[in-house]
């Protein structure tokens, strides 16, 4: 039973050899092994307790709630009458919920596309040598550090019809003649939150892709250059295949971050106008916390959870290196 790890102060070989040296020695080994195990578990206790309370319990409770007939009166108690699939039927039939699901897909696809293209271009730019690249690289992460609600509010300010910087710039340059109603035109508002979210996510893509590009061995690039490959060919045939694992992880994390977006949209449009920018997250908040239909909110939450967790197996597969040991990625 005693499979002693190399982390323990004696290797498994020593334990096997010590078998012959009498029972007392073996007992001491077993005690050491037990102590090692016990200490490990004790170090893990706060984390396990936290995960159970802050993740496992809410997720299970969310599933339970989605099958319950909740009302403002049931908020004080942990359970409510069983409702079968009523909440899910509601979500499927509710035009706003369906629109929110569609918007979430559009918003996510658009964001990932924009963030990846711009982020990759900037990452490539920063691998070149030019004056100011270091300071540029450190400042590019600013959007990432700001509270998201602040970003939402700032963009609301910049996208105002009158007195908004964006309209003013476009009109001064002569690109448009009339102020654009970025936030109150239902056909435009989804584009507006998309632009804001691309702005927000580009630094993440830039930083991760840049650090992957830094890890491409110089010899590989030089070899491709010697073979007469042009810049585009080098990028497509040599560099992209090498950094593909990082591209995959980055897109995956980008997807997960984007389906979660909440603060930015609440700050910018609050889901409006006429629910044109309602995402699953914002509509779920509305159902639960404004209409007090926690059961319906929970059902919509589960749609989102399934959507996010589709990525989980892929994510685990891509980060399997870190499951066992320190998969170095450099930085």
């Amino acid at each position: 039973m005693a499979r002693v790890g190399t982390e323990l102060h004696e290797a498994p070989g020593d334990l096997a050899r010590s078998r012959g040296h009498g029972a007392a020695r073996e007992v001491r080994h077993l005690t050491a092994w037990r102590r090692h195990q016990l200490a490990g578990w004790l170090f893990l206790t706060p984390a396990i307790a936290y995960i159970l309370f802050a993740f496992v319990l809410p997720i299970i409770y969310n599933v339970m709630m989605s099958f319950e007939q909740t009302s403002p009166a049931t908020i004080g108690s942990l359970t409510a009458p069983f409702a079968g699939l009523a909440n899910y039927r509601f979500i499927l039939g509710d035009p706003t919920s369906r629109a929110a699901i569609v918007h979430t897909f559009e918003f996510t696809a658009g964001s990932l596309f924009g963030q990846f293209v711009i982020g990759f271009a900037l990452a490539l730019l920063f691998t070149l040598r030019f004056p100011g690249r270091t300071i540029g690289r450190s400042l590019i992460i600013v959007p990432w550090l700001l509270p998201l609600i602040v970003t939402g509010v700032i963009f609301k300010f910049l996208f105002q019809v009158e007195g908004g910087a964006v309209n003013q710039l476009l009109m001064n340059v002569g690109l448009v003649h009339h102020a654009i109603d970025w936030l109150d035109d239902p056909h435009l508002a989804l584009w507006t939150i998309l632009i804001a979210n691309i702005w927000l996510g580009v630094p993440f893509f830039t930083l991760l892709l840049y650090s992957a590009l830094q890890d491409v061995p110089l010899e590989v690039k030089e070899a491709a250059l010697m073979d007469g490959a042009g810049p585009w060919q080098r990028l497509r045939m040599v560099i992209v295949p090498i950094i593909m694992p990082v591209i995959e992880v980055t897109l995956l994390l980008g997807f997960v971050f984007t389906v979660k977006v909440f603060d930015l949209v609440v700050g910018l449009t609050g889901g409006g106008p006429a629910n044109a920018t309602q995402l699953i997250t914002t509509w779920s908040y509305n159902l639960s916390f404004q209409q007090f239909s926690f059961g319906e909110g929970a059902a919509l939450n589960n749609v989102l959870l399934v959507l996010a967790l589709i990525c989980a197996p892929l994510y685990l597969l891509l980060s399997r290196g870190s499951l066992r040991s320190s998969a170095g990625t450099g930085s």
Partner: peptide, 27 residues
């Protein structure tokens, strides 16, 4: 430490990062 729970726990931490905040907030 070599613990049986390591792989399970690290995997669940990766999954925890994926769970949207609104799901947790409601419950």
């Amino acid at each position: 430490y070599r613990l049986r729970v390591t792989v399970v726990l690290v995997s669940s931490l990766l999954v925890c990062q994926i769970v949207p905040s609104i799901v947790l907030a409601t419950s």
